[in-house]
């Protein structure tokens, strides 16, 4: 079981990966430790400097849409953010999150506001969120099959190192 405590960093709908990290920034380096200074700069130039270790991104619909660029996930992780909560995700972002061990929780974030105190829990396949500030407890749909295996093994790197193949799906 994974438990993460942190404060909500509120974003809106359709936050695309270019907004998470601009293509113009990553053409010179893909080192997330360098890139993290520009995290979400198009949405809010002050965002990166205000991030604290353990912050949790809370977004609306279609988080991570647009480009499939994986730095959008590794930069979030490098900034010390280990979970994202959104109403829904674009599929490429969701895949990249799982592959890198960033926990994506899907639930109704409408009532969440900037700075809310949160606890994210991943219990087996089941993600949940407690919003202490709003006194809400929410459950996301379980993470299924091979995605859970990948997440449980720490991401796609350790998964492929270990298996050298994708194990047959447990359906």
């Amino acid at each position: 079981m994974i438990t993460l405590d942190g404060r909500a960093r509120r974003l809106g709908d359709n936050i695309n990966t270019d907004y998470i990290i601009a293509s113009t920034r990553k053409r010179e380096t893909i080192d997330e430790q360098v890139l993290k200074q520009w995290l979400l700069e198009t949405v809010d130039p002050a965002f990166a400097a205000s991030v604290r270790e353990g912050d949790i991104i809370v977004a609306g619909h279609n988080f991570g849409c647009g480009s499939a660029m994986e730095v959008a996930v590794t930069v979030i992780l490098a900034a010390g953010i280990k979970a994202v909560i959104a109403q829904s995700y674009s599929r490429t972002f969701y895949r990249n999150a799982i592959n890198n061990g960033l926990i994506p929780v899907q639930c109704d974030t409408a009532a969440f506001e900037e700075g809310d105190k949160l606890t994210v829990t991943l219990d087996g396949a089941n993600p949940s969120v407690v919003n202490h500030t709003r006194q809400l407890a929410l459950h996301g749909p379980p993470i299924s099959g091979i995605m859970l295996d990948i997440l449980a093994e720490g991401g796609l790197v350790p998964y492929i190192r270990e298996h050298h193949t994708f194990a047959p799906a447990k359906s």
Partner: peptide, 11 residues
């Protein structure tokens, strides 16, 4: 993404 690309390159 790049990680899936790498896995596909190998497997």
């Amino acid at each position: 993404g790049s990680s899936d690309l790498a896995a596909a390159m190998i497997t």
